[in-house]
Design a protein around this nucleic acid. Sequence first.
DNA 1: TCTGGGGTCCTAGGACCC
DNA 2: TCTGGGGTCCTAGGACCC
Length: 420
Amino acid sequence: MYALVDCNNFFVSCERAFQPDLEGRPVVVLSNNDGCVVARSNESKAMGIKMGTPYFKVKYLVDQGKLVVRSSNYTLYGDLSARVMSLLSEVAPKLEVYSIDEAFMNMDGVNDASLPGICRDLIRKIRRWTGIPVSIGIAPTKTLAKVANHFAKKYKGYKGVCVIDTDEKIRKALSLTPIDDVWGVGWRGAPKLEAAGVKTALDFVSRPAEWIRDRMGVIGVRTWSELQGIRMVEEEKNEKRKSICTSRSFASNITDLDELTLRVSDFAGKCAEKLRKEGTAAGTVGIFLYTNRFREDLDQYYPSASVRLEVPASSSPEIIGAALKALRYVYKPGFEYKKAGVIVADIVDAGSIQQVLFDFDGQARVRDDKISEVMDKVNTSGRNVLRLATQRGGHYADGIRRDFCSGLYTTSWNDLIQVR
DNA sequence: TCTGGGGTCCTAGGACCC
DNA sequence: TCTGGGGTCCTAGGACCC
């Protein structure tokens, strides 16, 4: 069986763990730049606040004292996530961390009858040790475990644990699950299915496989099987990422190439750091720019470009150099840019890089790798203490608006200023 | 005025090969 | 005038997830 553990209203729960007086009150957490709502407490959900609502549309509730708002604090959330996951790994024979707030425990080999008890104990322990409330759905496939998790969250009577383990329970659960709640059916697919008379998950599995295949391709058929208890979603292999992206919206529009150069350099530098941390190197470096799509009064431009490297690289000078080359290629003056990003792809293991036969830049590459190694040793604080001239200095703010940020509860100032 | 960030996988179509 | 059949690889875009 799979047990899907999902943290309830995770970002909100993290804020509450260190500020218990937020318990029972309507709380939302905002995205970067305090842009839009990305997490809601049950109370704020009940008020009708939708996921993704821009902050300016709920600000009046904050002003009236009816809603509490927090800027997102990803360092804190990452830290609490790691604590929760480590408690899970003590119980699960195999653990797949699926996202910051969610993990599949593969409980194959564990007696099915003992699972509910194990999970209830686990919920109590996680709550006591980390302050985070979680719900657990138990079922033979991942997609059904998702369904079970929905029920565990929705109905208090389950006390956080819902098991779907017999054909009868599967049928019952599917009949009560709207099609747009099914894992793998997105907001585009659901209306099409509903129009064809498929309102619930049970309607969905009642259609022939060919019918699903014609409309939703192989992924649809996979979901169709999973909902009937046949495992189709593969075990996650512990592979390295295939692409890495660092992107941000800007607090205000940018028109100037020099300013964009600073931002893109920072994004590219961050990508290079992530590559080195994973022990990988990228064969392609791409960038993209976005103007503000909500500003219908302004001209729109969404360019992207990528540069293929002769030899896969992870050094900051090489990755940044390639990103800036791509930036200069697509940049056009006269547009108000709202967002930019760098994507590195064609990632390979750093230890198995294919060299070129006549490598005239080989020495430069060795030098760049050494420079990066030194930068990593110095930049342990996460700030650009040692940086390329095109990157911004660590003493500048990062340009992200965070008006409602909670404290550094799990990271001390010492962590921030420590330089070895 | 103000609207997030980071991933994976599949598919269709074009370019190219013999 | 007549103009095949079978394959691979790459890419961009779409759809989905959190």
